[in-house]
Nucleic acid binder design. Structure first.
Length: 493
RNA sequence: GUCUCCUUCGUCUAGUGGUUAGGACAGUGGGUUUUCAUCCCGCCAACAGGGGUUCGACUCCCCUAGGAGAUGCCA
């Protein structure tokens, strides 16, 4: 049988970096082996279920370019692929476990369980269920039934011995049965299965061959193996992936910044960059290569190059990847990618005027190598679409020069605005050089006052290109505005 | 607390008994440049500690320490 793997998220929250890393690795593994990648929705927690999370899942996978061979919306021979539609199956098999003595009904209330946990914490005893209902007499059972308590079904973990399973990456993982979560719930009182039950049953009936999931599931691994044994089934191959951590070494979470893929999309990260970077957390190809397209990863991914140790998610390296991918993009494509951000900033309409379209077209080459994320376009292009705020004289007047000299420089530029806008960039630059000689100042002392006057900032895209995008009229107006301030300073200062 | 897993530069990693321990991000210094950015060049920086095994350990074994995860009618 070929490789069959699955990504089985539970729609209780937005897709985050850790989740998609698991999805990606499963997907790459399937592709590299010519196997099948299955999407399964584990929506057995009815309280935490979010419709939004479901939509987020689909849009995120779609954005990443991950496609699945079988899933809720695909044909497949093992459906349905939504656990809430398979409850009868789980109930049936939970019952069978009770019948053959591997599981039992438990009538303990959640209050009792809570008290138990508190007491254990206080007395520093071992945590876990005390197995009160494991050996209930018939009369006790019938009494509970009369009280109309909805029971759960718990798995009987063997009291003695140990459970061993082999992890593809980590090797043998051995655990004393007495250390395993004592008698975990399989079927909840609302009739839905817990993760453990549903997961094992589905993986079995869906013929899943390999389970790639994060290492936080290792402890459950022993339990799952026990479940397979109780059913008389053969467990799949386990491969627990190293976890993704935040900068403090703890499990990556909101504390560390954005982790929801949706947030990365909103900020203007590209799927190529996210896929590329995330696939390098816990996996590598060789000693130096780190740029991979999704298609390449579909071929090159291999379990052999997986790392055991957890990896810290590095936002800066993602930025670096993203900047690289932005620079690789064609100008046309970047233009259309950047447009929504200009719209959102209120700079242009959704259907920009021809003039604005022209500005955007000219802006792209200037902005391209300055973008880490697409949303950076707002800062970079603001001067083109709105007027500058208050000017700061100190930023306009170059060091070693005074207001009068600066005014002279800007006057000179202003006088030649016509030719500046007619000439090409080289000629304009030449003009600035000659002007600097004529006025006996450095080239920078010509450029910087102009830059600050026109863009409102000491940092901007190349000034000559920026001027042309802005247009002569606005350029002149802004120079005039600064000249007024400078002249005022000369008179009063 | 208990159990399990993990441990190479700040971070991601290469390394599978003999290497000046390599690359990348970040940082830092410099060059190109009208600022910023890009690009180029340089620098900084690691085998957690202790025992073994071996002619020889980053590589194998043990112990210690540190970190993480799990310990739910959540997944």
């Amino acid at each position: 049988m070929g490789v069959r793997v699955r990504y089985a998220p539970s729609p209780t929250g937005l897709q985050h970096i850790g989740g998609i890393r698991t999805a990606l690795f499963n997907y790459f593994f399937a592709k590299s082996k010519g196997g099948e990648f299955i999407l399964r929705i584990e929506d057995t927690d009815r309280e935490r279920f979010q419709e939004e999370a479901l939509q987020d899942l689909y849009s995120t996978l779609n954005w990443l370019g991950i496609d699945w061979d079988e899933g809720p919306d695909r044909n497949g021979n093992y459906g349905p692929y939504v656990q809430s539609q398979r409850t009868e199956l789980y109930r049936e098999y939970a019952r069978r476990l009770v019948e053959n003595g591997h599981a039992y009904y438990c009538y303990c209330s959640s209050e009792r369980l809570e008290n138990l946990r508190e007491k254990q914490k206080k007395d520093k005893e071992d945590f876990g269920y005390d197995r009160k209902c494991r050996n209930l007499s018939d009369s006790e059972i019938s009494r509970s039934k009369q009280d109309n308590v909805k029971p759960v079904i718990r798995l009987k973990i063997p009291l003695e011995g140990e459970t061993v399973f082999t992890d593809y990456l980590l090797g043998e993982i051995t655990r004393k049965n007495s250390d395993i979560n004592p008698d975990p719930v399989l079927l909840k009182s609302d009739g839905y299965p817990t993760y453990h039950l549903a997961n094992v049953i589905d993986d079995h009936f869906m013929n899943i061959t390999h389970i790639l999931r994060a290492q936080e599931w290792i402890p459950s691994g022993s339990l799952h193996v026990l479940l397979y044994k109780a059913f008389g089934w053969k467990p799949p191959v386990y491969c627990h992936l190293p976890m993704v951590m935040g900068s403090d070494g703890q499990k990556l979470s909101k504390r560390h910044g954005s982790t929801a893929v949706r947030d990365f999309i909103a900020k203007g990260y590209l799927p190529e960059a996210v896929v590329n970077y995330v696939s390098l957390i816990g996996w590598s190809f060789d000693d130096s290569r780190e740029f991979f397209t999704r298609e390449e990863l579909e071929k090159l991914f291999t379990l052999e190059k997986l790392n055991k140790a957890p990896g810290v998610f590095d936002y800066k390296k993602l930025d670096w990847f993203n900047g690289n991918y932005i620079r690789q993009m064609s100008n046309d494509k970047l233009g259309t990618m950047v447009l929504p951000y200009l719209v959102k900033a209120g700079f242009v309409d959704e259907n920009p005027s021809p003039e604005n379209l022209e500005i955007i077209e000219g802006l792209i080459p200037l902005a391209k190598e300055r973008l880490k994320v697409l949303s950076d376009i707002k800062e970079i292009s603001a001067f083109l679409f709105r007027e500058n705020g208050e000017y700061n004289l100190e930023e306009i007047i170059p060091k070693k020069l005074d207001a009068a000299k600066t005014a002279e420089i800007l006057e000179n530029i202003k006088m030649h605005l016509n030719e500046i806008f007619e000439n090409n960039e080289e000629k304009t630059e030449e003009f600035f050089r000659k002007l600097s000689e004529k006025l006996n100042v450095k080239l920078g002392d010509i450029i910087m006052p102009l830059r600050t006057a026109v863009t409102g900032s000491k940092v901007s895209p190349p000034i000559i290109g920026s001027l042309k995008l802005l247009g002569m009229e606005k350029t002149e107006a802004r120079i005039n505005r600064v000249l007024d301030i400078l002249k005022n300073e000369v008179v009063n200062g």
